[in-house]
Amino acid sequence: MNKTIFLLMIFLSISAFMLVGCEFGKYPLILDSSVTSGAIRVDLNLPLPVQVTQTTSVNISELRNVTGESVDSMKFYNLTLLIDNNTSPNDAGITGTISVNDNALVTLTNVNISEFQTERSIFDKDLAGKGFQYHAGGVLFLLNALKTQSPDILNVTVVAGTNASSLHFDLKVKLYGQIFANTN
């Protein structure tokens, strides 16, 4: 056999061998994203007022900023609470609600502030026995909001009261979603 042709066959075989069998990106890339609300300031000095109401907003479209890839879909998977800049009495408890676009999301019944000194998921099972409860209706609203990407802006309303003499802290609400990129 002519050596040139023989070697050409070797080259083509090796190249074909290299090129077959590898498939990239068969499944969509999944990107975790989050957006944090502005700090919700709670200042309460009893006996008045008995409770305080504050509202902040979260922009869902910011979740897409995590990637330059084309987005196929988004899914809600978590919402967390974090209390910062706390100068309340040590044993202060929070009683109140957190709602999203008027959908009740969380109810707190004398939950100690210290529970949220680190970021805590509203689905954290350890909170269940401490006066903390999430509402399925509010969770469903968040699931649909991220799925349909509407409304773009979520209004988070906090109504807080206490059994202590005062409450002073910043509350941050963080929304987590997963971005599913297009496979093309």
Partner: peptide, 14 residues
Amino acid sequence: GVQYQFQNGQVKTS
């Protein structure tokens, strides 16, 4: 109703 999915495999090959 609330789910978290870990990253998918990205290279399918044997």
